[in-house]
Design a protein around this nucleic acid. Structure first.
Lengths: 353, 353
DNA sequence: CTGAAAGCGCTTACAG
DNA sequence: CTGAAAGCGCTTACAG
């Protein structure tokens, strides 16, 4: 490219156009727009007038190259999973990320991915090509090697959900999945339930494992036995909950009187399956969902649900990331955010026998 | 910055490190990574080995500056509006945008904004600082001047929702709001309803205006009178629908037997308000919502709802934008996408008097 | 097919 | 406070 300004579309003014008009050196124009330089009021005035007249704004890409910062953090989204955009997780996470990036003058760069392995490919691509200053990784399936690989790239990185193995140097934010689920089950136990089912979703998922752990913990602490068929992995959709009803009730005399479901959609399926069997909620069976999605309070009966602080997790992740970037270091430590049980009409004492 | 590679964190390899190791000129390394240059197999091999050894990937920012393209399109999101992240619009739009950007090797740049005026500020900022190659504008409150101002920046631009005035040169995609609402009302009329209410939301909103127009059109074509209090603007939340019940039923003998609501949340409010008055849905009153949000089919009764093709709108907008960018021009024309009425249990014939 | 050079549009250490 | 120069890490027209 041996010619300057070779007639491209757009042809926007540059710092030297402004400099020429204001009769100063381009570096002076740069200083005026940098905000933190000593400039005489008269010069500043002249430069700003020239800039205004030309509708000039500094090119962010050129600036990024020069200062080696993009003012951008990134997130990779598995856009092929239909359910991803119907769950409360994605929009709430985005709300938190956007609020914090905005308030720091950052932008959020999003990439899609088609699979769990592609997710890592895309993340590494963004990192290695320096498209963003840091990245939030919200994958629920990171194995030890992958986290190691991410660390090897040495980028500012924050995980949503804590790392799978012992990676003390990786920063993360997470919900208190295990404790929250334990507390939900303890709540059901306090209501008088002794046979409680866990309807989980894919057990490869770290969150599922943690919740299951909380469930087992509560049952064990209360000295309650757990039958194998009370634990149903189903999948994270309404039908997963619906099918779990039959599977968890193979022994009628030992059928659960309460259900904890890993998301509200599965809870909806449970409600439907229970209704079909003539079981009333909450008189005969109690049901607790997870996420407190908008529909939870419009169901019949209104659904008791565990509200997971996705928005706050997004905000905390962005905060850790941007702070580290601005200090020139890497984020460290972690934040564990509390879920909150929202009690509505789908839970109550078990029937008296 | 008079020193090269001044000891910054990261200190990633550049094209010249690879060149040195492969014993070629940096321009040759660039050609290997550009993909479309004639390179001898031996040289390519050497370069790729060196790159591999150094874990090199070309810096995307430097490339962007050089080729004057970012491979990025942008969207500004009003992150302060809580309801924005609870509605089906945002996640579905994102799903469409991400699918298409991904398939073209583009990324999506997101910025927040705090108000309608800030939205324009942010959009102009992204455009003028060249942070993205094009932008999708999803604001529902563009006035003529604002669209003019956006056009003046001459960026590749696609509107979600059509422009407010005569701007034949602006590209846009939209749902067939007016026609779809007209068809919903015609459906209610076919069922036998003659007193039909419109519960809308903020009338500053273009979409609201179009829907209202469709409503009026259907009523007029059927020769049905419209009473002023059947039209309720409420606001886009459950309570807006709830309050509309009282306001639309001030004359009991002329009370509506059917309601069209501008979103499902307002429909939920209508259901609640009607239930409180002892009115059964659909036996006494029919209700139609809009958006076919996940909860629509979990309500009692299951809600008949107008499914708006948000995902497809996002995809179409991204497609138009990227195609124009790649052809070096600007997007033109428009796409009008069809909504679809999903009939469930909340609609039926009116009661016989 | 490959090298050498100029350029993309900024920033900033160095002088004065 | 301001100018002149070198640099950020790429790309590509021009030679050969």
């Amino acid at each position: 490219m041996a010619t300057r300004n070779n007639g491209r579309r757009g042809n926007r003014p540059t710092i030297r156009d402004v400099a020429a008009r204001a009769r100063v050196h381009p570096s002076t124009v740069s200083r005026v727009f940098s905000g933190h330089a000593q400039i005489s009021p008269r010069t500043r005035q002249r430069v700003l007038e020239a800039a205004q007249a030309l509708n000039f704004r500094p090119n962010a890409i050129a600036r990024s190259l020069s200062v080696q910062r993009t003012q951008t953090i990134a997130l990779v989204v598995p856009h092929v999973f239909e359910g991803y955009f119907q769950d409360a997780f994605f929009p709430q996470l985005m709300a938190g990320l956007l609020a914090v990036t905005y308030s720091h003058g950052y932008r959020l760069l999003l990439g899609g991915c088609e699979s769990y392995s592609d997710e890592i490919v895309q993340i590494l691509d963004i990192l290695r090509t320096r498209q963003a200053d840091g990245i939030v990784v919200a994958s629920s399936r990171l194995d030890v090697d992958t986290v190691g690989e991410l660390q090897r790239q040495a980028p500012p990185l924050v995980l949503i959900g804590h790392p799978p193995a012992h990676h003390p140097d990786v920063a993360w934010v997470d919900a208190d999945n295990q404790a929250a689920t334990r507390e939900v089950v303890e709540y059901l136990i306090r209501l008088g339930h002794r046979r409680i089912a866990y309807v989980g979703g894919d057990p490869d998922n770290t969150v599922v494992k943690e919740r299951l752990e909380g469930y087992r913990e509560a049952m064990a602490r209360a000295g309650l036995p757990v039958e194998a068929h009370w634990i149903d992995y189903g999948y994270f959709a309404e039908d997963g909950g619906y099918q779990a009803v039959a599977r968890t009730r193979v022994k009628p005399e030992r059928a659960p009187t309460a259900y904890y479901a890993g998301n509200d959609l599965m809870a909806v399926g449970l409600l439907r399956g229970l209704r079909e069997r003539g079981l009333r909620v909450p008189q005969d069976v109690s049901v607790v969902g997870t996420n407190d999605s908008p529909e939870a309070r419009h169901l019949t009966p209104e659904l008791t649900s565990l509200r997971v602080p996705y928005r706050e997790m997004g905000a905390a992740a962005a905060e850790m990331l941007i702070q580290a970037i601005q200090e020139g270091g890497r984020p460290r430590g972690h934040r564990l955010l509390s879920s909150k049980l929202v009690i509505r009409a789908s839970t109550g004492p078990p029937p008296r026998r």
